[in-house]
Amino acid sequence: MKIPQIPESDVTDEAVFLNRRSLLRLGATAAIGASLAGCPAANEADAASKEAAGASDRRRLPNVAPAPPEFRVDEKPTRERDATRYNNFYEFGTDKKDPARHAGRLRTEPWSVVVDGEVAKPGRVPLETILTPSRLEERIYRFRCVETWSMVVPWIGLPLGDVLARFEPTSKARFVSFETLFDPEQMPGQRRRVIDWPYREGLRMDEAMHPLSIFAVGMYGRVLPNQNGAPLRLIVPWKYGFKSIKSIVRIHFSEKRPHTSWNDLAPDEYGFYANVNPEVAHPRWSQARERRLGEFRKRPTLPFNGYADQVASLYADMDLRRNF
């Protein structure tokens, strides 16, 4: 391991420090979930110097199955510090830097998720229970924001369909929706009503059950940083990033299409489907190109974010211009 050279002035601030502590605890939880005892975390001083060097000190997730070829894009992953310091997470503020600054207030442990609606097994489910029976898997996916920036991230998580199936959705369950935590104490961005909190997103059941859709609990080999949606978030790689809701506390199954935050806010701009589509412009800007974080020039955006082979059939009979 490389030993970073740190000036003594680079002291980790308290919020980051506390955040690290809670992440370390979550790491332990996730390790239990993955039914494997992990090796103990490095000592604090070592962790602090790594933090200052910009290296990650979050708890490494053990026993992660490597990404199978169909779930691994053959592109260079975005630098971890870019993917963790340039975030849209309005719960912590609307500036891209706000989430990394303020997410240290979020307590990710204990964490539980309310499951309700059209399911045989509703209830409040602890995060550990959600993670327990499955082995965590790596997925290296493209991620495309509706704002025309993009990244490639090695996520760690579970197939969404496997988790949802355990709650036994009834035959009436045609949609599944998710809610982010609402707690302005922990999420200071919620003190202003930029969005009608809590943030909500949803999928059609067939989209949710698709093998590409995952619940992510980690990235870059370690637990998710709070600003990236710890401890539990959605990743639906063929859709614009706003569909991949963060810090989930509720899963609701319904017969009717659920209300979703951006669609409610501006229905002509953000569709319920929000599939990445270079041909269908946002009413105010083009979606034909995107800029990878860390790159200068923009590159062409791919239909379904490059996952057309795997997901286009889900929308075979739909007009994608109308159902954007």
Partner: peptide, 20 residues
């Protein structure tokens, strides 16, 4: 130059279709 790489088609499209 940077965003559109001096792609005249893209520039023309932006100029004719994007109110902003």
């Amino acid at each position: 130059l940077v965003d559109l790489g001096l792609d005249w088609n893209a520039i023309a499209e932006d100029l004719t279709e994007r109110p902003y």
